[in-house]
Design a protein around this nucleic acid. Sequence first.
DNA 1: CAGTGGTCTAGACCACGCT
DNA 2: GCGTGGTCTAGACCACTGA
Lengths: 249, 249
Amino acid sequence: MNTIFRNSPLPRYYQLKEIMREKILSGEWKPGDLIPSERELSEQYGISRMTARQAITELVNEGLFYREQGRGTFVSRNRITQQLTKLTGFNEDMRARGYKPGTKVLSARLWPADETVAAHLHIRPGDKVFRLHRLRMADDDPLALETSFVSFIGCEKLLEDDLNNYSLYYLLETKYGYPPLEADQELEAGLVGSEEARLLRIAVGSPVLYIRRTTYTERKQPIEYAASIYSGHKYTFYAHLHREQLISK
Amino acid sequence: MNTIFRNSPLPRYYQLKEIMREKILSGEWKPGDLIPSERELSEQYGISRMTARQAITELVNEGLFYREQGRGTFVSRNRITQQLTKLTGFNEDMRARGYKPGTKVLSARLWPADETVAAHLHIRPGDKVFRLHRLRMADDDPLALETSFVSFIGCEKLLEDDLNNYSLYYLLETKYGYPPLEADQELEAGLVGSEEARLLRIAVGSPVLYIRRTTYTERKQPIEYAASIYSGHKYTFYAHLHREQLISK
DNA sequence: CAGTGGTCTAGACCACGCT
DNA sequence: GCGTGGTCTAGACCACTGA
């Protein structure tokens, strides 16, 4: 995959984004490297400068590149930034923090989407989705409750999978061909209800983090909506921030 | 301010952004409203469609608008969200989301750093820092309490500054020459104590977000350590995640 | 100075939503 | 069918960087 197909249903800027992502993953472009100029890329791939620019701009917004006027565009050096805006599943996240991840499936069934779920997955309310309710553990200690709603043609086959031992994201990618690529996530503080408190083995009214995530596969197609509750005193969220423009009064 | 000046040093897309932000702040455009189409805006302000589109795109990225293909562009429902990877001060954050920021300085004095503050600012415990305690408001409603510890040679001059009307980051950058460029931030859920509850006008034991931030200027030099408490039900964090490698089992 | 990103134009065709 | 946003082009001039 090193040329842009003019007849592809995928937009040209999108194809270029994937090509450039691949160059970073393969190590051809390393952190701090100067990438080819917008004019060079447009000539090399036979697209207009504005189209090449759109691909670069989106990767800048994702934190993969940064631009310096008059100098060029560079691969981001800051590995922390990339690490912390990285899309990971629970298992990866826990391993990165040095904990042994554990999962207990509480229920797995087909379920008619309510309005919230339908809106996030771009389907109609009442459409059947695969609903997965899991207790997540770190070093055998309950840490979070996660309810996932998964929607794709044939998603009912997930009913037969072993979700206690295989990660949902792993199955989506390898068995069903829907790699989770991007996600939008929201996070806020709240209090735990009685049922959740019992499962997490914490006191009713303890502080918790509510995390809601919509996960997308190729072409921004939503594949999963998940609502999670993380035990407040056990989980801290880290981020590295960087400035983009002038500070105003 | 309702026309775009062709000779202005400010880019046209930027002028249009400010005009549209103003329309939201003034209430002319309300959450859920359909805004004029890209073609209408370009005609109305005498700019090309691509320029109008750039202004809209940036406000979409900031969360102020959302687009629906074939339908139009709409003003987002008023939910306070923060881009997790963009370093902004409180005022910028609020304005970008269509709220009027307000600040009340509760105290400002020199203070000997404790061990936590000293560790984050790379100084010795007991060294004098500028300690600033502020109540932060959105549309005149208390939203957060923020305690900042600032350390640089000459930081005692901040005692004479008008911090009710100028942002700390603005002064650090323009008056003292220490632009905040990066930050590390951590965030967790907790319960509010009685003193904080009173100032935030919420019930004791309400859920809150504890946010701790170390801010750096050039060469990763720490300039500020801040501990904040955000009212839980009023504030949501937002992050866009993207994948970098394969999902593991 | 040449090369870079930043901004801007005046078109074009497409896929989609709605009526 | 018509209006919307989504994509794309082939130019243009600017401000900035570095040799």
